[in-house]
Amino acid sequence: MIKLLANALFMSTPLILGACGEVVAERTGMMVTAVEGIFLFGAWGGFVGAYFTKSLLLGFLAAIACGVLVALLYAVTTIHMQQNQVVMGTAVNILMTGICEFFYRVIFGTPLEPLTVKPLPVLPVPLLADIPVLGTILFRQNLITYLTWILVPAVLFLLYKTSLGLTLRSTGENPEAVDVAGIRVNRVRLLAVLFAGILGGIAGAYYSIGDIGMYTTSIISGRGWIAFAICFLGNWNPLLALGAGVVFGTSDAVGVYVKSLGSGFFPSELFTALPYILTILLTVVRRRFNAPAKLGTAYVKEH
């Protein structure tokens, strides 16, 4: 049970990371529908980086670079070329599936044994890790997880207590006013999407080099979309997104656990599908929304 809870937090980290990036971007009016592609390319880039440099740090840096690259492609086409964000995101995701599969083959050929790197180690916090029960759950996690917990309040502070946060939020609510104030709307949006790219890249790499230590084509399989949903269900608030992220992490962990038991007629698939079912249910149940007014619409300056 304790192990399951610890694992739940472990699995929730990338979802929270991705959702935080998504929150910041969506606050400026940009739905990052390319999030699945960002995760995937991050996972790919992280693995390739870590495999060749034998360093997890460099792996994560490579993942950030990959995430930013995808985010840049998405941002330029949706912000500056004003293409529909949903259509463009779908296109980018398909492109990334192709790129990752193709270049994995280009770089590694078809290895007989799956290639592996040593995944992210557990980093017990001195003293705190020795607290019974709680210590095992909370303070025997990895570095990225701790950083994520620091990041959430930081993003919350940024959004609500700083002038930069005000700019970000206004860009999503009333871009004309931001423009009149002499701030370039499209630049704010571009930077917000790139921020989502950074976090999404790390989140993707968390699955490949943080968790299982290898890369497969189905490694993300919709986790990016779940991060997207978490932002939505967390009412565009990083703290609520953290809560939602833990719920999804738990269902992810339960799914992995049940699958490891093996099963006959018992539908263990139900648990694998749990995060997706949960997303549908929560989308339906949640009635009050606080969506940024200009979410999903390009800003065209009047001349």
């Binding site: 192709g98 599969e101 193709f102």
Partner: peptide, 14 residues
């Protein structure tokens, strides 16, 4: 690799 077609589809869409 046959996945070159996936790559192509992505580029064509973009």
């Amino acid at each position: 690799p046959a996945s070159i077609i996936d790559l192509m589809e992505g580029f064509v869409m973009i």
